[in-house]
Design a protein around this nucleic acid. Structure first.
Lengths: 119, 119
DNA sequence: ATAATATATTATTAGTTGCTGATATGATGA
DNA sequence: TCATCATATCAGCAACTAATAATATATTAT
């Protein structure tokens, strides 16, 4: 067994990717791609509950994927780094080619974000 | 609430990112970056158990992140798309700048891959 | 045919994660 | 001050996930 010394790095990197690995968080990141939004606007745009949104925002903020800027009683959030956008674009591009496989992957569930309906 | 019609896309994309969002799977992807390996070699390189490795490989294969090529009783795995490599590189780069934040993020745990020790 | 090897599959289980509902904090306006 | 609004925090629960151990399926060698 190789103890490649990068073990901790891999664990941290996995944790980073998990920021993107939840449909609710990804919805939030997605709506922030068009520009900064307040929490209320994010709630409205994603259909997530207020506390759920706030929880995920705390997670994304702690992880450094989004930035918070308080203004009075509002807090405006935005993507913190251009690479967040790049990662999403790359994921989107990759997904376009492997979507069918991802859809069929049964090791873990798809976890549709709560509160969003569908036609 | 905006029903942006991309809801399903977001859910799928989240699922794709979860392929990278587990330390064991990421270890596997990581060792495959240097070139194709058989299952046994992956087991040795990562320190994961055989069945655990096989389970994760099935997941990664189904999702289209890795390719399997059976040769006799061996099965050689390799990354299936250059974008997998790119995504990892981008994640690594982003992590270099936000590592402290990720480390402190307490919403979910770090899930060190089992079987790898540390100094 | 039998044993040994390489990989895959499955059930079980322990631990993790996300959601809700309730409540707290802090800011603004009357 | 008091009411209202925007956001954050927290406990509890339901659901999910990854690891293990045991077993199954192929493939090669004797």
């Amino acid at each position: 067994m190789i103890l490649n010394g990068d073990t901790r790095g891999v664990a941290l990197q996995a944790k980073l990717f998990r920021g993107f690995g939840d449909a609710s968080r990804l919805s939030i990141l997605d709506v922030l791609r068009e520009g900064p939004l307040t929490v209320g606007e994010i709630v409205e745009a994603t259909g997530l509950s207020q506390s759920n949104t706030s929880n995920h925002l705390a997670c994304l903020r702690d992880c450094g994927l989004v930035m918070a800027e308080p203004q009075g009683r509002y807090v405006t959030y935005s993507l913190s780094d251009p690479r967040v956008r790049e990662l999403m674009a790359l994921g989107e591009s990759l997904l376009a080619d492997v979507a069918r496989g991802v859809y069929q992957c049964t090791r873990y569930e798809e976890t549709e974000p709560v509160g969003t309906e569908e036609g």
